[in-house]
Design a protein around this nucleic acid. Structure first.
Lengths: 214, 214
DNA sequence: TACTGTATAATTGTATACAGAAACACAAAA
DNA sequence: TTTTGTGTTTCTGTATACAATTATACAGTA
């Protein structure tokens, strides 16, 4: 049976605030106070402050004597994120291809298959979840905690925008088949191909997103 | 006059612990407790915990019911860090070349000149400081907070190893002249050249470091 | 010997009280 | 009208008390 690690309040608060900021629940420019969060979340200031320190480090909020400013992710940030991912995400796929176990390969395949399933069901929220999981598994399976730590925050920050992306049926379907192609390259342990396909996949995601934001 | 922002205890504790971990003052594998840090640092647990949460997020420590495990930076991490920097640090130089002001250019030149001065004086600690400052200024002047946030932690984590590097006179002198070349490309607003020279500079640093660690 | 149960100690997790600094509102004076 | 001063409020910063969980030592037992 799987152990279900109980998260501390501080971690729960962090996860919730991070999600709410990245999904746009809080407006960019909005100002909160710790006391307001105490009221909203029903926990004391201590875990809230610990969460805020981490959000501040990720530049999702700025804390001053005026309160907590929601910074979030701008369009400029998004462009920069894709430019960076374009340069290093292929490296993660390469490493994963070379190092991942059969069990990990199976987990990745399952994610691809689920994504394809949800595409046929047109379930946007689930598609997005599997989309995220695919990329995050590759970061993990790369075996490099540095790559993981570098790519993970970048990927998380694209969340709000990817949400819109998967609502476009043709893009959702294209994305799923690109994931399958990457998976199959990995299954064949073809690191060069996996890297190349990953770079193309990021580029396609970038292009699609920029088309939409015009 | 420049405002001198007073750092909170939590920030001071973070800076100190981060430095001590990255410089090797704390041994990798060592286990601390919050109470021990209270004794060592003379502040209460609250600011210490806030600092620890941030260090945990950077994977410099791991916190469990046993205490605070010092994780630090491994040789594998270092290799990964250089592989990543090789791919994106040139991008930062390119952006900086295109966007930085005359005032910022002046600040960069001053850093290069100081580094050259300390090379003639064989002052390793000051050389390392100017070396760090050069790179960090470029991150800042790139105008991309995402690039800054991505590169800064990677660069910081190389600190301990760079320390050894600059004690080698020929490498210290080579590094300074590479910095000057990058600066001059930027001054001429030649982004392609600045990018190319930066990539070569990172590659040289990587090669030199790997030679030493054998 | 190896294992298990239990009491104790050590450590982190959380709430709260208080201190200090900054923002704010408002009145008085130029 | 603008500015300046001042008292008040609001907010974050810090310390500390207490709760809950986990590790540890040790005795008892198969």
């Amino acid at each position: 049976m799987l152990e279900h690690k109980t998260l501390s309040l501080a971690e729960q608060v962090f996860d919730r605030l991070e999600t709410d900021i990245l999904c746009g629940t809080y407006q960019i420019g909005e100002v909160l106070t710790e006391l307001k969060l105490v009221g909203d979340l029903g926990v004391s200031r201590t875990p809230i402050r610990e969460a805020l320190r981490r959000l501040e480090q990720e530049h999702l909020v700025e804390i001053s004597s005026k309160g907590i400013l929601i910074v979030g992710v701008t369009d400029k940030d998004l462009a920069d994120i894709y430019a960076i991912r374009l340069r290093i995400e292929g490296m993660a796929s390469r490493e994963a291809t070379l190092h991942m176990s059969e069990e990990q390969l199976r987990e990745l395949r399952e994610t691809v298959e689920l994504q394809e399933f949800y595409v046929t069901k047109k379930n946007a929220e689930s598609i997005r979840l599997m989309d995220s999981r695919f990329h995050q598994l590759i970061y993990r399976f790369s075996g490099s905690s540095v790559l993981f730590d570098t790519l993970m925050p970048l990927h998380k920050k694209t969340q709000k925008f990817r949400k819109k992306s998967v609502e476009n049926e043709s893009r959702a379907s294209q994305s799923a088949s690109e994931h399958r192609a990457i998976y199959e390259a990995m299954e064949k342990r073809d690191a060069d191909l996996a890297e190349k396909l990953t770079i193309e996949h990021i580029e396609n995601a970038r292009i699609h997103m920029q088309k939409r934001s015009k």
